[in-house]
Simulated scan of single mutants.
Amino acid sequence: MKIGLFFGSFNPIHIGHLIIANTMATNTDLEQVWFIVSPQNPFKKTKSLLHEFDRLDMVERAIADNSRLKANNIEFSMPKPSYTIDTLTRLSEKYPQHTFRLIMGGDNLEQFTNWKNYDKILEYYGLYVYPRPRSEESGLKAHANVHLVEAPLLDISATFIRDSIRANRSIRYMVPETVEEMIERKKFYR
């Protein structure tokens, strides 16, 4: 099976994440999309991160009704911070029957050459890239293993959602109802 890997902190998962994942699962040759919940992104501060199991739980609730979307916690047992190449290697060893492709936004493509072993990721896995607002042009777009995917141009930010929660503003329609209920019940991001 060809599986797209959508890495992120998902802090919290929101409608933008779900639209991109569903677009990848239904409008490309990817058969499934796995959300790889990252305990710690090497490029982000961890101060505002909810516990990884709470974020995984929110992802699972958000995608429960879509059999083409899965949540995966493989990075929880790996050294932190996790590097994408190490996770890809571990997934390939654990699931040799699958082929994996990395899903990323066009804004990340600009910085991709800064990633650990980015050349190996390109060579062995390849990228499925969706458009992001204010993305710069990248020479990598012409690479044979970079697939540009037409998808809605979304500018929904988890930071905006967390700030809205702290300011007691509504996050309705920005996150799935099940995620909103969990955030309210557990008083996340307050």
Rank of each mutant, 00 (worst) to 15 (best):
F6K: 10
S38L: 00
L127T: 01
P176G: 11
N114R: 13
P39N: 06
T87Y: 13
F35C: 11
H51T: 03
E180H: 14
S38F: 00
A142I: 11
N41W: 13
A25E: 02
I3A: 04
P12A: 13
V179R: 08
I15M: 14
Y189S: 02
S164I: 00
D155A: 05
R101L: 01
E52D: 09
P42D: 13
W34A: 00
E110H: 10
I161T: 07
S92E: 12
E181F: 05
S92P: 05
T23V: 09
L5W: 12
S48R: 00
R101A: 06
L122P: 00
D54A: 10
V129R: 05
P152T: 08
S157K: 06
N66A: 09
L148R: 01
E31I: 04
K186W: 10
E93D: 14
T113I: 15
E123Q: 15
Q97M: 12
D119R: 11
K94I: 13
F100W: 08
V149A: 02
P79T: 13
K141V: 15
K70T: 04
I3M: 01
S164V: 01
A142D: 08
H147R: 04
E110D: 08
S138T: 14
M1Q: 01
T46G: 03
K2F: 12
L50S: 07
N72Q: 12
L49Y: 12
L5I: 12
G106R: 02
L50Y: 07
S9F: 00
P42N: 10
Q111E: 15
I19F: 07
R169A: 06
E52M: 02
Y189Q: 02
I36T: 04
K120F: 00
M104W: 08
W34T: 04
V179L: 08
R134K: 15
L122V: 09
L148A: 00
R172V: 06
M182T: 15
R166F: 01
D155N: 14
T26H: 13
A71W: 06
K186N: 14
Y189L: 02
K186L: 15
S67V: 12
E75G: 06
R101F: 06
K70L: 08
H17G: 01
P176W: 10
H98S: 10
M182R: 14
T113W: 06
A71N: 05
Y130E: 03
T28W: 11
H143G: 09
E177L: 14
G139F: 13
T178M: 05
R61K: 15
Q97K: 05
I15T: 15
S138H: 12
R185Q: 15
E52R: 00
N41I: 14
V175R: 04
I165H: 01
F112L: 03
I121N: 02
E137C: 00
N145L: 00
Y173F: 15
I156L: 10
K2N: 14
R134I: 08
H147D: 01
D29P: 01
M24W: 06
P39S: 13
S67L: 12
F6P: 05
I156F: 05
V175C: 03
H147S: 01
K45G: 05
I13W: 11
K94A: 11
H14T: 07
E93T: 12
K120H: 08
T99Y: 09
I103G: 00
N73W: 01
S9N: 04
